[in-house]
Amino acid sequence: MEMFLDYLWVFLIGGFICMIGEILIITTNMTSARILVTFVLVGVFLEGIGVFDYISDFAGAGINVPIIGFGASLTKGAISAVESQGLLGVFTGCLTSTAGGIAAAIIFGFIFALIFRSHTKK
């Protein structure tokens, strides 16, 4: 039962965040790049003021899978690197923590671009 509730939270919070994105699209005609930038900045902000981990504790993937999690993880990397390396951490931290995601997107993007060709929309 507890597990079911956990999953329900993930679904509701994740869905709610995505729905906010859709509301932004409908009301402001934002393009997807702008939506993603906005949500990354939200993640950076939440992590910066230190509330992201609290949300993450009960929302799980609901907040980590949306691009907000990506922004938070960038900042988390920067902050922890600053704590261990000082000023150098400002530069090394953020990309270290998200290296996996960015590299995966680049690698898979490259491979699938070699394999597939574009399809016309119907």
Binding site: I25, S32, S118, H119, T120, K121
Partner: peptide
């Protein structure tokens, strides 16, 4: 041509966006 105009003026065809 839909596909040439789309990539020149708008977005890649495979991008999952909605048309206004």
């Amino acid at each position: 041509h839909f596909s040439t105009a789309e990539r020149q003026y708008r977005f890649p065809l495979e991008l999952g966006n909605q048309r206004p």
